[in-house]
């Protein structure tokens, strides 16, 4: 059962802003989804290879060649804040 606190915790992990009203409603919806997951879990999969991809194809490989030109100025036009070619973000605290 997903109570509001559990929904809030998941929202925090996914960095999604969820207000209290939405959190209360989402709990029920998630329960429904988990019921379906439980049904899936009941399927007999003994000896079945796990499927990594729906297509029965394998990965194409690329030759090791540099074909991308440096386009920093162009790409950084979308960034909210840059300085001297570096993206500037709020301070990341690593240590406790």
């Amino acid at each position: 059962m997903f109570d509001a606190a559990e929904v809030k915790r998941l929202a925090h992990l996914a960095r999604i802003a969820v207000d209290d009203t939405t959190a209360a409603n989402l709990g029920g919806e998630l329960d429904t989804i988990m019921k379906m997951v439980d049904e899936l879990k009941a399927a007999e999969v003994e000896g079945v290879e796990p499927m990594a991809h729906p297509l029965a194809l394998s990965q194409r490989l690329r030759a090791d060649a540099v074909t991308e030109a440096p386009e920093r100025d162009l790409y950084q036009q979308n960034a909210p804040d840059t300085v001297a070619g570096v993206y500037r973000v709020p301070r990341v605290i690593d240590r406790s």
Partner: peptide, 24 residues
């Protein structure tokens, strides 16, 4: 020791100007 990145064709050269080896 590759010339280009694992999933893109951008350079892996060490010591380049910041963000000049980063493609889309």
């Amino acid at each position: 020791l590759t010339k280009s990145k694992i999933f893109s064709a951008a350079s892996t050269r060490f010591g380049a100007e910041p963000n000049t080896n980063a493609c889309l």
